[in-house]
Structures are given as structure tokens and as C-alpha cells.
Amino acid sequence: MWNRRKNDEEPMRPLGSTPSSPEPAREGMPVSTMPVRSFEPDVPRGTATIGKSVLIKGQIVSKEDLVIDGNVEGSVEAQENRITIGPNGRVVANVKARDVVVLGDLKGNIEASGRVEIRKGANLIGDIRYAKISIEEGADLRGSLEMIREDVKPEPAKAAEVAVKPAIEKPAQQSLGTPVGGISSK
């Protein structure tokens, strides 16, 4: 399933990454924040992208829109922005953002103050809290769906439960633009 687009035209290649390069992994490989050509025609400028040959383990906090088309394990947060998990994206993490779009694989929970879009071909195992949601035909979703209602505040007991849940492993803080290790090229 993951290789289903292996032979497709590569949808995007962030500057600075060399997906097919035989070179060994380099420590501290930068994650591009340059505008990129993407599978989404309307991706705005200023979108950070994790290319499909990139593996990140840790906590990602982004203050700009983020496209993940590579592998991420840990947690991903972009409270006021959109996170897109591309068709090649393989994410094992809890994702918290304003909007979340899933085209690839995600194992983890989503919390979105805005809209969640589960696109065709997406595989998602986890619980989703959202203000709005769209689910395309052909998406595989396993988990709970709960709408965030403005007039309902989360119960203290449930909030505490969420806070205690570990995100895979205790990650090192890492912000895009200032990579601090834990990044390797496949």
C-alpha cells in the first residue's frame, strides 16, 4: 500500500533533499521551508514540507502550514495552521492543528479546531476531534469521531487523561527551521 504511488510522478521534492541519492544519511539534514511544488495546486507560499525520504522522530511544532510526505514518529503540532499528511506520508503521532488533511497513513489521534479532511486512499487509525470533517469515498478510518462543540468544554477527567497519554516516546523538542537531530534520510 505504501508503494502504491512508487511509480507515479514524484509529486514534490523539497529543495535540499535528494530522495534518490545514494549518499548516506547526514545528521542535521535541514527540513525545507521553501515553497514547493505540491500535489495540491493551492498550497500557499510559506508551507514547510517534510519530503518523502525524510524520517523524523520527535516533537514537531510548526508556526506555518506543514506538509508531511515522509515518515514522522512522535507528535506534530501546528495550532494555528494546517497540517497535510501527503500520499506518501507515514505518520505515527498525535496531530494537533487548526486544519488537518490526510491523504496517507496516520496512526495517532487528531485534534483540529477547524476542519479535518480524510481523503481517498488515506489510512487512519486513531480518534479524531474536530469542528468540521469531510470523509472521501475510499478512505479507511478506524477510530472515534467527536465533534468539538463550542458550548461544551472538555471534562476535566478526560483532559487529564489526554495529558497523561504518552506520544510514542518522550521526544526531544524540535521546531522546523532549526532541526536538532533525530532526522535522518532513508
Binding site: I118, S134, I135, E136, E137, A139, L141, L145, M147, R149
Partner: peptide
């Protein structure tokens, strides 16, 4: 069953929490 927009919207309106398991898959 398979996750879909119709059932999700229907239970959203009713204020219920919906879980999908995709049993056949």
C-alpha cells in the same frame, strides 16, 4: 461499516460520538 460522510454527519447532528471499526476490511 466503512467510514463515510453520511453516517458521520447524521450522528454529528444528533450529538453522538461515532466510532468506526471497518470490520469487513
Amino acid at each position: 461499516g466503512v467510514s463515510n460522510q453520511e453516517n458521520t454527519d447524521f450522528f454529528n447532528v444528533l450529538g453522538h460520538k461515532l466510532r468506526y471499526d471497518n470490520f469487513v476490511r
